[in-house]
Every structure is written in structure tokens, then in C-alpha cells.
Design a protein around this nucleic acid. Structure first.
Lengths: 341, 341
DNA sequence: TTGTAAGCGTTATCAA
DNA sequence: TTGATAACGCTTACAA
């Protein structure tokens, strides 16, 4: 854990024959300093290989250029692509990113929050779970700027939210299936405790209602996270006396394992089952048949999240909650077809 | 960037009616403190919601529990899964992870190094590019512990390396194709300036030589990163007067786009072309035909990298360079077949 | 067992 | 324009 001794402002000051204050002013380009001495200081900095010590600076100025990023799981292509874009945009804004993952485990999420609190990060971008509302609220009250991305928790003031139009996207997906004659449409969703889960279920319901189709609760499967659960839950739905003729997968973490399961169960897509999945991962056009997907503009999502946080970090006032919804697009591919018979 | 005022050791000390030193000793469980006062201090900590200030602690102790993670690109499933595991194992070891990505751009890599240097991270896990050897060396000399993962740069002393047995894996892949009668085997590889690129090319060559097959340089394509290049380079190879009958994709970043390209070019796998790709992404069994892959144990890779770094961080001595190679496995699936005719 | 005081590397204030 | 000095929050000798 220990680090060797590296040159400090004091070393630079001595080397350049000035006082530490001058060096600081040169480095931060604030106070006034004569051009000649400025050059001398810069030369010394270069020669000694001086690099400002972040921790010391943070301690003194009570500021930081580090933000936290709290995601469930970076192995999920949805989150990993999001993370990639966020890290890039943050770097463009001069912000470092401390990444933590929760694996959808509330205890790990709490540990993440604790870590970021101790690190005194200036802000956090998070796709929060459902259990730690109090901790998130506390974090915000502590003065940490917070931007929820993809999902959010209600009723925490002064937190920005940027997500997709899940209700609309889900409505479109279900409608596309209804238009093809489907009446029994299964939905594999994330937990309805998450905002995305709720919204996707709501959009689905609205589409059914608009077409006078009664809901069958047995067709809606909520999956928190785990793939094993996905297998059994899915088997259950497919084994119903009146099995679904179409399936929407609204939980990005399980898309691939759902497709795998369908294949090993000998279910032909779209003959036996039409399929739509959320998130256009790089492989969705490569399966046979290629999958109809709800495509999200992850780069926009990331850019928006970083911008929102960045403006908050640089604004003295306490801003009100802002919410932004980005559009998504239903990309029709051969995995959906008119219902048989 | 600014943060509000939060309770300090001093506040806790006053509240508990002790001195700051005692509070510190309670928090860090080192020096001796009477059970009764300890309880009083803990109560005050809980009541005030005190949290030690990382930066202050780092400044004073010259230690940190943050490590850097420098990867090319977290959108690439190989790196994203690796990152997920690394973050998890690091968290288990009590380490926070500052993630930076380089997009294979040397300038961005340099900025990452600079950032991590300023943050005075205790150590860094990196999949380095080829251009910044001097900067990496300098980082090491500065006292930052360094573990290269997946790829590495030679000739930097005191740096651990953990990677896959690329030479062997590539040899196996090529051999599997040769055994099926293939003689013209194309290899899409990462840059031969990277250790992985070199090793995979070497293994490929060895297999060819062992079977008395002469190399055709036109069949080896080095791709640094970009997908657009992948398209044109691949087209070139497939349009050769004597086109390959088999293809190995040794650059995980382009696997999906290569498969996409083959499909849109109307090339049937494995009839026209047998295909093997490196890295068993979640979708490789879902294409038609399912892809033969070189499967890496990413979790082992991650665990090993974190462990190596962790031991270095906690060891006073300057350890010598260690190198570890993990096995990989060729998973045969229908994308390879005996050569036609 | 506890308190005191110095110092980690910065930056901000104030005088010169 | 520059330099001296204090303070950010913490840990750690050392003294009591």
C-alpha cells in the first residue's frame, strides 16, 4: 500500500528559487505570477517530474474530480456499453470514475455507497436497486450530487434521472406482437420494484388493454437477476396449459440465457414463439433467426448522465430534480411473425 | 465539485469527551483504548454519522486502498467480463477501482497513466498498449505496483503478468483446422505489436510448420481495433485468388462484426468457411451455426491479477517479476467442418 | 490508557 | 508580484 516519496510543491519551489505559493499559482493558473518566474517554475516542474498530489489538493480545496459509478453488473452488455460511454465522457470532462458493482445485491450496493462516501466523491452516477433508498437519500443529503441512470428511485429530491422511455418501448413491442395476431404474450421482466420493471410492465398492460386483451398474470415473470431462476421461470411459463405464442424479454441480463433455453427446449422461433428482447447487443442480429429488439441509444444515455452530473458539480446552487427520457426504437427482425393457425 | 462539511475526528472527539487520537485508535483498532471509552466513541461515531476522510488518511499515511484499472474498451465483452470480475475481487480485498479506458489510443492511455499517477493509486491492473512503454516503466519506478493482465510489455522489471496461454491456444485452434483438412487458414489477429497478437500468430505458425504447410502472409491480418478496418481487411482476404477455407478470429473486439460481415457477404459457415473465434462470449453458441471458440477462464484471470497486485501492495519488499499463464480450452462447435472436396 | 502536537502536500489569505 | 503562514482531516510518536 505504501508509496515512495515524490517531488512536492516545496521541492519545486526550492529548485526554482521561489515560494510554494508561487508554484501553486503556476500550476493552477490562478493568482498572478511574473512571466519569467512562471517559466522557471514550469522548467523545474518538468525537470523534477512534479505531479500535484490529488489527495492533498482534495483535502485542502474540498473538491474532487472523481465521480462514482454504481452498476449492477458490468458483464451484462447493456451496462458494460453504458459504462464504456460513461467513462469516456467523464474523461472528456476531466473526471475520473470509481467503478463499483452490486451484482444486484443490496448489501454490496450499501458497501459501494459507503466506499464512495468515504472517498468523498463529488458525484455519483448509479443504476440503483430498490432496497437502499434511505442510503441513497442520505448520500444526497451529505452533499454528493447524484444522477440515476436507466433506473431510479422515486421521492429523493434533488437527484437527476436519465432513462429510456420504457413504458413507450414496451408498449410498442407488445403492440407489434398484437398486430401480428398474438394474444398470449409473455413478458420476462426485471423486478417490478425497479422503475424499469414497473414501466415495462405498465406499457405492456396498456397495449393489451387497448386491444381488449385480458391480462394473464401467469404470463408475467419478474426476474431479479439470476440466470438459474430464468431457466425455471421460463420453463414454467412455456409449460402452461395455454402457452404463450410470443415472448418479450425486458431484462437485459438474461436475454442470452433465455435464447439458449428456448433453443435447448426445442422451441422454434418464430414458428412456435415470437421473440422480442430489450437492448440491441452486438449479437442480436447474428442468431437465427435474428432477433427483434428494442434499441437504446446508450451513448446518448451516457452523455446525458455525465452532463447532468457535471453541471451539478460545477453549479453552486442546489438544483431541483431534473428528469430526462430518451427515445428508443423497435428494430423488427425475423424473430417475430404472425401467430400460427 | 464542492462538498458540505461533515463530521471529523475532532467533532467525534468532542462529542465523546476524548481526544482526537483516541478516536483514531478506535476507528483503526490499533493503539490501546479502554473498553468503556471505546464504546462511548463508537456511540458518538454512530450518532454523528462520522466517516473517515479518505484523502486525509491517504495524505497522512501515504497509503491508499484504490487501484487503477486500465483497459482498452469495456464495450468489448472480453474486457467487460474481465472488468466485472476484477471489480468484484478488488472489492472483496477492500480495494476501490478507478477505471479508465484507452480505446486503444496511446494518447488516451497516457492520460490514464497521468490521472492514476496524480491520484497516487497504490497499484494498477492494465492491459497495456504498445506505445507507452516508457510511461509504464516510469509509473513503476515511481513506486506504483503494476500488474499486466491479458497483454503485457516486455522488459519492464518488477511488474507481474497474468495472461492466457495464447501460443498454445492458437496452436490448438489451427491444429484443429488442419486436422479437418484445411490448408489455407486465415488469421485475424490483434496487432503483432501486442503480446497477445504475437503469441497467437506464433502458435498459428508453429501448427502450420508442424504440418509442413507454408505460410501465406496474405492470410494473416493484423487489426489494431477498429471495426471499419475489419470489414475491408476481411473482404480483401476473402477475395484472394485462392481464398481461405478457414478463419480464426484472434481479436476479441471484432468477432461479432466479422460474423456479421460473413453473413452479409453470403458466406456459409462452415460450408464455405470454417470459423473459430477467441473468447466464449455469451452469444457464441447462439449463432447458426454455433461457433467453435477458445474459452478463457476470465474469473481466474481476474482473481489472479487482483491477488498478485494485492500481495505486492501489502509486501514491503520489492518483489521480482512474476508471470502466470492460465490454460484455455478449445470448445468445438459446428462452425468448423472438414474442408470441402 | 489518554492527550498533545507535529506533519502529510496543498491552497488561500494576508502582508510585504 | 511574491512570501510567510495557517488550515484542510487524519495518524502517530511521545509524553503524561
Amino acid at each position: 500500500m505504501a508509496r515512495g516519496r515524490e517531488p512536492t510543491v516545496k521541492d519545486v519551489a526550492e529548485h526554482a528559487g521561489v515560494s510554494p505559493g508561487v508554484v501553486s499559482r503556476v500550476v493552477n493558473a490562478n493568482g498572478s505570477v511574473a512571466e519569467l518566474t512562471r517559466e522557471r517554475v514550469l522548467a523545474s516542474i518538468a525537470e523534477l517530474g512534479y505531479r500535484p498530489h490529488s489527495a492533498a489538493r482534495e483535502l485542502r480545496t474540498r473538491t474532487t474530480n472523481t465521480i462514482g459509478l454504481v452498476l449492477a453488473d458490468v458483464a451484462n452488455p447493456f451496462f458494460s456499453q453504458l459504462a464504456d460511454h460513461i467513462v469516456r465522457h467523464a474523461a472528456d470532462a476531466g473526471l475520473g470514475v470509481l467503478l463499483t458493482t452490486t451484482q444486484e445485491d443490496p448489501a454490496m450496493e450499501l458497501k459501494s455507497i459507503e466506499l464512495l462516501l468515504q472517498k468523498r466523491v463529488g458525484g455519483v452516477i448509479a443504476a440503483p436497486g430498490t432496497e437502499n433508498a434511505a442510503a441513497w437519500r442520505h448520500m444526497r443529503e451529505t452533499g454528493v450530487e447524484l444522477t440515476f441512470v436507466d433506473r431510479f428511485i422515486d421521492r429523493i429530491p434533488g437527484i437527476d434521472v436519465v432513462g429510456m422511455n420504457n413504458e413507450h418501448a414496451s408498449h410498442s413491442a407488445t403492440t407489434a406482437l398484437i398486430e401480428r395476431g398474438h394474444r398470449r404474450i409473455a413478458l420476462v421482466s426485471g423486478s417490478s420494484e425497479t422503475s424499469t420493471g414497473r414501466e415495462r410492465i405498465a406499457g405492456h398492460r396498456r397495449a393489451l388493454q387497448e386491444h381488449g386483451i385480458s391480462e394473464d398474470p401467469a404470463l408475467v415473470v419478474e426476474l431479479a437477476f439470476r440466470h438459474v431462476e430464468a431457466e425455471t421461470a421460463l420453463s414454467g411459463v412455456l409449460a402452461l396449459p395455454q402457452p404463450p405464442t410470443a415472448l418479450i424479454v425486458g431484462n437485459t441480463a438474461v436475454s442470452a440465457s433465455v435464447i439458449t433455453h428456448l433453443r435447448s427446449a426445442g422451441i422454434s422461433v418464430p414458428q412456435d414463439l415470437s421473440v422480442i428482447v430489450f437492448h440491441d447487443a452486438e449479437w442480436t442480429a447474428l442468431t437465427s433467426p435474428p432477433l427483434t429488439v428494442v434499441r437504446h441509444q446508450l451513448d446518448d444515455l451516457a452523455k446525458c448522465a455525465v452532463e447532468m452530473l457535471h453541471t451539478r458539480l460545477n453549479s453552486a446552487e442546489r438544483l431541483r430534480r431534473r428528469e430526462k427520457r430518451l427515445p428508443s426504437e423497435l428494430v423488427i427482425r425475423p424473430s417475430i411473425a404472425p401467430v400460427r393457425g
